[in-house]
């Protein structure tokens, strides 16, 4: 199972990184979300995988490491705050700058396309 878990984390990371490097803001937000899944899973994995070993006293024979879980729990919530901030920033940038490129000015080629769009 560890191998499959690692494969999943790897694929999530790769997809997240690729989308994060794109030019349009919404895609970057999706990339960041994927990346934070990957990071959370990775952090969680540092406590090793265990079945039926929830870190709750009296409920199981043995307990898996609770510390990574505590870290990941807050990371999930902070990750939400970060995604929200990024997405609102994207909206604000779109509102103020008139486009959805991460730098606020899309490449030349695209600008001409945009003009065409407006005209049509």
């Amino acid at each position: 199972m560890e191998l499959i878990f690692a494969l999943c984390v790897g694929i999530l990371t790769a997809c997240g990184v690729y989308l994060t490097l794109r030019g349009s803001t919404f895609t970057v937000v999706i990339g960041l979300t994927l990346l934070s899944y990957a990071v959370n899973l990775f952090l969680f994995a540092s406590g090793r995988l265990a079945l039926n070993a929830a870190p709750i006293l009296k409920q199981a024979e043995q307990h898996t490491d609770p510390l990574p879980q505590a870290l990941v729990l807050t990371a999930i919530v902070i990750g939400f705050a970060m995604t929200a901030f990024a997405v609102i920033l994207a909206m604000r940038a779109r509102a103020d700058l008139g486009n959805d490129h991460v730098d606020g000015n899309p490449p030349e080629l695209e600008q001409t396309l945009q003009h065409k769009d407006k005209r049509s």
Binding site: L3, G10, A14, A38
Partner: peptide, 10 residues
């Protein structure tokens, strides 16, 4: 990067 992260995780 995905490969590296996966390897490290494994």
């Amino acid at each position: 990067i995905g490969g590296v992260v996966g390897t490290i995780t494994y």
